[in-house]
Amino acid sequence: MSMPFYVSPEQLMKDRADYARKGIARGRSVVVLAFEDGILFATENASRALHKISEIYDRIAFAAVGKYNEFENLRVAGVRYADLRGYSYDRADVNARGLANAYAQTLGTVFTTEAKPLEVELVVAEVGDVPDDDQIYRLSYDGSVADERGHVVMGGHAESLAVVVEKEWAPGLGLKDALALAVRVLGTQPEGEARPLAAAQLEVALLDRARPRRAFRRLTGAALEDLLPGPR
């Protein structure tokens, strides 16, 4: 019979974190930007059906990077959570903070107790009546939550892309400018010029402050092409 080696808790957690981080960095980045009339989500995604950005509830949307089966599961759980809450109380009582907490507990529990951490990173965003009321929560694989102001980049080379966004983002952007910035950031390469991205390579959606009830709207096809910056 072989004796298991002693592994210190620090080492155990570090190994898990490294494992999750590696899985997340493998995929394409998602950019979330607050702008004047709502919150914009954009990612490079050639699939028309397997979404990384989705609607959760009237004013709440979800974006994820990492393993598809794992974040898809969390997305469905979020829709169920929100719909059940709205049905038991009222539609106005469903908010992003409650959902972010539920996700954080789930991610944290899985990280510490299960065989393998979830290789996902999420954003839960809620659009308010005015830009100051917008909420963007970023959740990591270990259950940590960050309340972000204005912009988030996750997945891929998130850290270097975040520097670009940090430099160029300003409150009160228009939709066109916000989309141009998002596309520029997604196309940024470690070296050399930014790649131009066409509408067919992008998955873009927004939480539109002006829409009466369900604020979530996908931008596809001609509507997206009209908004994209022209050929350079």
Partner: peptide
């Protein structure tokens, strides 16, 4: 709302 003691989303949700 969640009977799971760890506070995570219950199994039925996932």
């Amino acid at each position: 709302m969640s009977p799971d003691p760890s506070g995570r989303l219950p199994r039925a949700f996932t």
